[in-house]
Amino acid sequence: MRAIQITEFGGPEVLNPADLPDPVAGPGDLLIEVERAGVNYADTHRVEDTYLSSSALPLVPGSEVAGRTPDGRRVVAMVESGGYAERAAAPAGMAVDIPDGVDAGTALALLVQGSTAWVLLRRNVHLAEGESVAVHAGAGGVGSIAVQLAKAFGAGRVIATAGSSEKRELALELGADAAVDSRAEDMTAALVEANEGRRVDAVLDMTGGRVTDESLRALAPFGRLAFYGMASRKAPKPVQLPNLMRHSATVSGMWLPHAFQLPGDVVGRAMAEMFELVRTGRLRAVVGGEYPLADARRAHEDLRSRTTQGKLVLDPTREA
């Protein structure tokens, strides 16, 4: 089968097409003919070996696929690795059936980006009706869905940040009440101004560096910041515990694989709720780019440049 393999760690340049044996489905696994494979920011860290969990070489990147099983089921599934390929094996417990009328790109956007946004809002910041929430990278994969979910969950005011006028316009189109330039010199002041002079109740942050530090200072008493990524590749300053008490603030982290371990099938419930929102027209997944499988390197370059919008996917059925 055709796949993308890395034999050394590095940047997008280490992503190379390769012909590899088909995966073998073990006990409890599903063999999936891949229709689309998702590209995530976490993949860029895996390729560098800077992710939360280390990787072994050689590696076929990719943690999510959408396609068909041999018995005809259409599913979207998480995989440990191996998603950038024509075929993948996934644990049955990590697969969700795709409803009729939902395309593969939308299903992929909901599985990782959508579930991330849902868990951040429901479990990390416990967004209450009428509260304000700031969503960094509001036109990105997670952000574009988080903006819409926050409105659907009853947020009083949703503030999105983005680095271009086109991205800010998209965030407003998706339901944000205000859009802030992510390059603002003082993010604290920018968020407070966008919230009509009030500090914000919640922040969803995947940027890192000074943006995280300044967002924390923008929190209202009993405000919550949920940290789920570091796109800037710059760590924020260590959180000082006395400052949390001084401002009655809460800072949490979130890594989506842990959500699959929660009792009560949390991810399954999140997917069911989001599929229903899609069906009723209250949620739209933004698929910002489809690339032939062989162009995985270009997809990573575009993602790392932070010029893309929404979800990026690879198409193994398409020639370069």
Score class of each variant (00 low, 15 high):
W118I: 11
G281S: 07
L262K: 06
G223Q: 04
A272H: 14
L293W: 11
P70N: 03
R298C: 04
L174R: 02
L216M: 15
R198K: 15
R87L: 14
R198A: 05
A128G: 14
A85Q: 10
A202I: 05
V313H: 10
R73Q: 00
D201W: 02
G105F: 08
N195F: 10
R279W: 07
G288I: 01
E214C: 07
A194E: 10
E33N: 15
I159V: 15
L172T: 15
K151W: 01
A25G: 05
P221F: 07
G26M: 06
Q240C: 08
E196A: 14
T106K: 06
K167C: 07
V192N: 14
K151R: 03
P58V: 04
H300G: 08
T280H: 12
E8Q: 15
R279C: 11
S63P: 01
R123Y: 13
G62P: 05
V60E: 06
P257A: 08
W118P: 09
L15Q: 06
S54W: 08
E319W: 02
A137W: 05
L20Y: 03
V251H: 04
F222I: 00
A162K: 08
V278D: 08
T307G: 15
L303A: 00
E319N: 01
R168E: 04
A37D: 12
A189S: 04
A128C: 12
P236I: 10
I4K: 11
A107Q: 03
I159K: 09
Q5P: 05
P99F: 05
P292S: 07
T188D: 07
N124H: 15
A184G: 05
A85P: 11
R318G: 01
A37N: 10
A171E: 08
G288A: 00
A249W: 10
R183D: 01
I98Y: 06
G175P: 00
A90G: 02
Q309K: 09
P17G: 09
L57G: 06
S164W: 14
D181P: 02
G130Q: 13
V60T: 15
N16K: 15
L241C: 09
D71C: 01
R199A: 08
A171P: 03
M206V: 06
L256K: 13
I159H: 02
T317S: 14
G82E: 03
S182T: 04
G10H: 01
E131L: 09
V267E: 12
